[in-house]
Write a protein that binds this DNA or RNA. Structure first.
Length: 296
DNA sequence: TTCCAGGGGTAGA
DNA sequence: TCTACCCATGGA
């Protein structure tokens, strides 16, 4: 058992961050609502799979408890800290968003105490696969498909081999598409996820290009839509996970929210609906998402 | 049983 | 750029 910790700034709300959307209950993440913590099995650079339990017991600090069969290498500890920082977005600055929240008031006023961060996966590959698994399916189906992927292709945690890490692209790519389809029931998404895995595994697709913060959003969007299975909704969702909030994913969740809370008619005009959040500038998606959460 | 989900690819205009 | 049409799967 190893204990690691990460310092946080005062404007960081751990419970809000991990429960900001459904990611915390998608395997390998396991949410503990009693303690407002989550755990996940993570494959480490040293080769072994460890269980990380992430919590925030004291203010200004995130605690990571690591259970591993073998002693952690220094590179493992560094890797874990980097990945948890990434998941919790500890390096993102929300100052300007909070200024706008205070100015707007209403449901947004409460966000300025450190909310607004949306949990993400340690890797862009995991986020891409999970976003594809949210398309044209109910949430229960998303959880089922991700569970099947982890069960079939994840690296097991030795002390409890039924617990597994998220699959590496190489693990999926090592099977043919037909074999992949035989192990997981992803419907027509199987071909998209298999192709993505193959391209990442053989190096023909470099996902790190998506994280280039100096590139314009339009360029990142174009690269995202070059991945089969990523359309407008999925690309915009990925842009949010990449820390770009200037566009709103217009899926059924958005449409339902606008009908219920902004008196939009049955087949409302999408441009008019999006115009509701226009004055939020580069924070449109967060303004919408957290208003939607508060109105539930 | 039918419908459709936190849509997307493709062909044809 | 816009519009039909099709796409696998399983829960409601």
């Amino acid at each position: 058992m190893t204990h690691l910790s990460l310092p946080t700034t005062p404007d960081f709300d751990f419970p809000s961050t991990i429960t900001s959307h459904g990611w915390v209950v998608l395997l390998p993440n396991v949410y503990d609502k009693e303690t407002y913590s989550f755990s996940r099995i993570e494959a480490l650079p040293g080769g072994q799979a460890a269980r990380l339990t992430v919590s925030s017991i004291t203010q200004n600090q995130v605690k990571i408890t690591v259970e591993s069969p073998d002693e952690l290498l220094p590179s493992d500890k560094k890797h874990i800290k980097q990945k948890v920082r990434h998941m919790l977005r500890l390096d993102e600055d929300y100052t300007d968003f909070y200024v706008q929240c205070q100015a707007k008031g209403a449901v947004w006023a409460g966000l300025a105490c450190g909310q607004g961060r949306m949990l993400r996966s340690p890797s862009l590959f995991e986020d891409l696969v999970k976003v594809i698994c949210t398309t044209n399916i109910q949430w229960g189906g998303t959880k089922r498909m991700v569970r099947e992927l982890v069960d079939a292709y994840g690296t097991p945690f030795t002390p409890q081999p039924e617990l597994k890490a998220f699959p590496a692209p190489q693990a999926i790519a090592s099977d043919s598409l037909d074999a992949f389809k035989g192990k997981v029931n992803l419907g027509y998404r199987a071909a998209y996820i298999h192709e993505l895995s193959v391209r990442v595994a053989d190096g023909s697709l470099d996902l790190s290009e998506l994280a280039d913060d100096t590139a314009p959003t339009a360029e990142i969007r174009k690269k995202l839509k070059g991945i089969k299975g990523i359309g407008d909704y999925a690309a915009t969702s990925m842009l949010m996970l990449l820390g770009r909030y200037d566009e709103i994913p217009t899926d059924t969740v958005f449409r339902d929210h606008m009908r219920k809370n902004h008196a939009a008619e049955g087949d409302f005009d999408l441009k008019q609906a999006l115009a509701v959040y226009e004055d939020w500038g580069c924070w449109k998606a967060l303004a919408y998402w957290f208003e939607m959460l508060e109105s539930e």
